[in-house]
Design a protein around this nucleic acid. Structure first.
Length: 425
RNA sequence: GCGGAUAUGGUGAAGUGGUUAACACAUCUGGCUGUGAACCAGACACGCGUCAGUUCGAUUCUGAUUAUCCGCCCCA
């Protein structure tokens, strides 16, 4: 018999985990709807070139982490490494920018794939929830996105979120800065780490991210992005931070924050959370402003801003953070029958209660009372509904409140009403 | 992609180059109960990630492989 394992970097979520993942997605989508975002569902695979163009040919996501293949007709296909590119493609193919009011406010949730070395909170198939605002005409859209993420994390129950934020300026500012960095590092790059040597060629901005100590010494004296922002970029960023101050949002200016996707400009931000146990999964959410993505995939130039959360990371941290509020699988009523005759009656009662909206379950096996109560407890049932010969004869059930350990006799026809009153308290 | 650690039943785990792979919890059966406890008797890995090799013999040694976890890279 073949022995199947889950594919590397994939996982099965069930019971509590699955329940809480759904809950997280539910909280996020309802907040998105409150913020005026409309759902969009796009395919899980697109042509490889879409991602290459959007995420940037030099980005790691494209060069070494893409799940790509050739289909039976010879098409170059890739599983989406992130959802933004596909959403932008959908905006263009459906001409949403012309048929719907700008800015478009879209939200999405679904799996993404990256061929990486798996670790905790980092899977090859993972779920992203994100929002995109396409066609922004005010820095307030940027603020709105940041606020959405901030409030979403509050609602999910994260007490102390670290919001890191930076501006990488518009294209002109960024080009000037990149040039200055190259000039600065050129004489020193020889004695820096191999990663930095590579970054020097592909994306000098990323050198700032380096964690090697000796390199840090050199990086300390590197030119600062903030000195290269042109007036427009400076004002744009200033407007955003001022507004965040007005709204009372705490944030950290992090000049080394540059992000891995090449399409960003102006504001970029990340949400971090470090648990009491010190678990740091990296960013749990991140986003930024981008000016040219819609154009890159064949539409008009539309400035946009968006962000995405890693749903599995949120789930992992929430489980560790608040085991008490972590949702449990539970039911309202567990039915216990004594004897064959009673079983059918209890089953009928189950269906009756279900039709009234109560979550019910029972065993069709002949179990001892003790065993039955154990199962009821394990299923986190609020009540047990018990019946044997005597009850059936009299048309009643025993209803036991499993938490209070109180039991009452209830007429069959009063069951729904009785439970309704009980459960409300 | 690079470096390191780990891999025993449903779970937590102990252990050894050689007759029955400890212990605990959970589960199941029986005793006994129309109310979740306790107690008593019993069952529960033909197997120690997978595949090879060394050996008279390997779960224990060696190699490869797979997976997980940690660090790096990068990222949600």
């Amino acid at each position: 018999m073949a022995n199947y394992q889950p594919q590397r970097g994939t996982y099965d979520a069930y019971y509590e985990d699955a329940l809480n993942i759904e809950k997280i997605e539910g909280i996020l989508s309802s907040l998105a709807s409150v913020y005026g975002y409309n759902p969009i569902i796009t395919p899980m695979y697109e042509s490889t070139s879409l991602f290459a163009r959007s995420a940037g040919e030099s980005s790691d996501i494209v060069t070494k982490e893409m799940f790509n293949f050739v289909d039976k007709s010879g098409r170059e296909i890739a599983l989406r490494p992130e959802l933004t590119a596909g959403v932008m493609r959908a905006v263009v193919t459906n001409k949403l920018y012309a048929t719907k009011d700008l800015p478009l406010k879209l939200c999405y949730c679904g799996p993404a794939f990256r061929y990486e070395r798996p670790q905790q909170g980092r899977y090859r198939q993972f779920t992203q929830f994100g929002i995109e605002t396409v066609g922004v005409n005010s820095y307030l859209s940027d603020v709105e996105n940041i606020m959405f993420g901030y409030n979403a994390l509050q609602m999910l129950g994260f007490p102390h979120i670290i919001l890191k934020i930076n501006s990488i300026g518009d294209e002109e500012s960024r080009n000037n800065y990149r040039k200055a960095l190259k000039d600065f590092f050129a004489p020193k790059i020889g004695c820096m780490c191999d990663d930095c040597k590579r970054r020097f060629e592909t994306n000098p901005l990323r050198i700032l991210d380096c964690k090697v100590e000796e390199d840090q010494e050199i990086i300390k004296d590197a030119p600062k992005m903030s000195d290269f922002l042109n007036d427009f970029s400076k004002e744009y960023f200033n407007n955003i931070t001022t507004e965040l101050d007005n709204l009372g949002v705490e944030y950290e200016l992090d000049p080394t924050l540059v992000r891995g996707l090449d399409y960003y400009s102006h504001v970029v931000f990340e949400y971090h959370y470090i648990s009491e146990e010190g678990t740091n999964l990296g960013a749990i959410g991140a986003g930024g402003h981008y000016d040219n993505l819609v154009k890159e995939v064949g539409g008009p130039q539309l400035s946009s801003v968006g962000l995405a959360f890693g749903v599995e990371r949120l789930n992992l941290l929430l489980k560790e953070l608040s085991p008490d509020t972590y949702a449990k699988t539970e039911i309202d009523v567990y039915g216990i029958a004594i004897g064959e005759e009673a079983r059918v009656e209890v089953y009928h009662a189950m269906e009756f209660l279900r039709s009234n909206g109560f979550a019910c379950d029972m065993s069709f096996e002949n179990k001892s009372m003790g065993a039955s109560f154990k199962i009821a407890t394990r299923k986190n049932a609020k009540f047990a509904l018990i019946a044997g010969e005597d009850e059936i004869k009299n048309g009643v059930f025993q209803v036991k409140d499993l938490k209070k350990q109180e039991q009452e006799t209830v007429k069959a026809e009063d069951l729904a009403e009785y439970l309704q009153n009980k459960i409300e308290f």
